Simulated scan of single mutants.
Amino acid sequence: MTDQFTGVLAAALTPFTADASAVDIAGIRRQVEHIVAGGVNGLVPGGSTGEFTALTTEERTVVNRAYIEAAAGRVPVIAGTGALSTAETIALTQDAAEAGAAAAMIVPPFYDVLSFPELLAHYAAVTAAVDLPIMYYNIPAATGIELSAEEFGELGRVTGVTCFKDTGGDFPKLTRVHFDQSEDITALNGWDTLTFAAFALGARAGVWGAASVIPQLCSDLHRALVVDRDLDRGRALWALINPICVFLETHNYACAIKTGARLVGVDAGPTRRPILPLPDADVEEFRVLLRDAGAEVVA
């Protein structure tokens, strides 16, 4: 396991111009400054929060490279490079490596559901082709692939995948991997409302979209639970953060994150269609939740 998979890793969004026709590079720089200033430990662009399925292949390379350039070595960037074919996944991962990514997060192909042997072959091909730590992106609701705890361990042993971001929401399974398969693969949290439980369990890191909106609160939670081992402080922080996480998981996630970014003063433009803006009532609800948590909200 490599050092960059430690602490709070912000699932980063993709800023667009006002009409959503192009990636907003200046907007990426604003996002990075906002997140890094909040003490977050790393950036993960190009995932679901970053609307990667709405980007062209060229835009995906542009976004990853822009985040790497803006981070300027201050925090590691784990670039999302999963694609529908092995060849495109390798090409995107090679480009991220050449640009200076610290690692790559790779979701398995998500249209034709892969068998476990096909999954192993896919990741083995990527790890053989690119000398870069690989994070498996576990999101069964999108891929249809539901691995057992033992299969996660085999994935690490056979392919060289070092860890996985768990966006499956099965905390008992994550716990089994954490205790029983840790020699072969490291379980990282990727389900917002399980963040407190995962850090309390001992998960080394969490890939967390809320960290793109409230980075300081997210960093404070990690420090309280993991660094300082102050359970009372962690509980108090989680009482503020959890309602925000519940809100995010109740709406289209990328759209909710972009709404939050706008509310805290780092507007990243709209989501791309077919995703529509949140209704005004939901925006106002989010505004109240952020204020209640102590976040500075713009008018």
Rank of each mutant, 00 (worst) to 15 (best):
E285D: 15
A79T: 00
A22G: 09
G190C: 11
A142N: 15
V207C: 13
L201V: 13
T2N: 03
P140C: 13
V75G: 05
E118C: 07
I78P: 01
I241S: 05
R29K: 00
V130S: 01
G82N: 11
F52V: 07
T17Q: 04
R157P: 00
A103N: 05
Y253D: 01
S115R: 14
S148F: 13
L132V: 07
I241M: 01
P133A: 02
F116Q: 09
D230W: 03
F52C: 08
E284D: 12
T93L: 02
G47D: 10
T195I: 15
H222F: 12
D95T: 04
C218N: 01
R157M: 06
G50W: 04
V126S: 08
F196Y: 15
G169C: 13
A54T: 10
G206V: 15
A72R: 02
V266Y: 10
A149N: 13
R262G: 12
L120A: 09
D131H: 12
R291H: 04
A293Y: 04
M105F: 12
A141R: 15
E33K: 02
I134L: 11
I68T: 00
E284M: 11
P274C: 13
T61S: 12
A66F: 03
A20K: 03
N242A: 06
F171Q: 09
D170K: 11
T56P: 05
E88Y: 10
A211L: 08
S85F: 07
P274I: 11
T259A: 10
G82V: 06
Y137N: 01
I257S: 00
